Simulated assay, not measured.
Amino acid sequence: MLVVMAGLPGAGKSAVADVLGRELPAAVLSVDPIEAAMLRAGVSRDQPTGLAAYLVVEAVADGVLASGRPVVVDAVNAVEVARRQWRELALRHDVPVAFVEVVCSDPVVHRRRLEGRSRGIEGFDEPTWAAVQRLRGEYAPWSGRRLVLDSMNDLRANVARALEFLPNPR
Rank of each mutant, 00 (worst) to 15 (best):
V3C: 08
V3F: 11
V4I: 02
V4M: 02
L8A: 01
L8K: 00
L8M: 05
P9K: 07
G10D: 04
G12C: 11
G12I: 04
G12S: 11
K13T: 05
K13L: 06
S14E: 09
A15Y: 12
R22L: 12
E23T: 12
L24F: 00
P25N: 02
P25Q: 01
A26R: 02
A27S: 13
A27M: 12
V31M: 14
V31I: 14
D32I: 11
P33A: 07
P33G: 09
E35K: 15
E35N: 10
A36K: 10
M38K: 07
L39H: 03
L39G: 00
L39A: 03
V43P: 00
D46E: 10
Q47H: 08
P48D: 09
P48T: 09
P48H: 09
T49G: 03
L51P: 04
A52W: 09
A52K: 06
A52T: 13
A52M: 14
A53K: 08
Y54P: 03
Y54T: 04
V56M: 09
V57N: 11
E58P: 08
A59Q: 14
A61P: 14
A61K: 11
A61Y: 14
D62A: 07
G63K: 15
L65I: 10
L65Q: 12
A66C: 03
G68C: 09
P70N: 05
P70A: 08
V71Q: 02
V72E: 07
V73G: 06
D74N: 13
A75I: 12
N77C: 05
N77W: 01
N77A: 04
A78F: 01
A78E: 00
A78M: 00
V79R: 08
V79Y: 01
E80D: 13
E80P: 04
E80N: 10
V81T: 07
R83H: 03
R84E: 14
R84W: 02
Q85A: 00
Q85E: 02
R87G: 00
R87F: 00
L91M: 09
D94A: 11
P96S: 08
V97L: 00
V97K: 00
A98I: 05
V100G: 04
E101F: 06
E101T: 10
V103L: 06
C104N: 01
D106S: 00
P107A: 06
P107G: 05
P107T: 04
P107Y: 06
V108K: 09
V108S: 09
V109Q: 01
H110M: 08
R111Y: 04
L114I: 01
G116T: 10
S118Q: 13
S118F: 12
R119E: 12
I121N: 03
I121Y: 05
E122L: 14
F124N: 06
F124P: 04
D125H: 13
E126F: 05
T128R: 13
V132Y: 02
Q133T: 05
Q133K: 12
Q133H: 03
Q133R: 15
R134T: 14
L135K: 03
L135E: 10
L135Y: 02
A140V: 05
A140C: 08
W142R: 15
W142P: 03
R146F: 02
R146K: 14
D150H: 05
S151F: 10
S151A: 14
S151E: 06
M152P: 06
M152G: 15
M152K: 06
M152A: 13
D154I: 08
N158V: 12
V159E: 12
A160G: 13
E164S: 14
E164I: 06
E164P: 11
F165W: 15
L166I: 15
L166W: 13
P167Q: 07
P169K: 09
R170G: 03
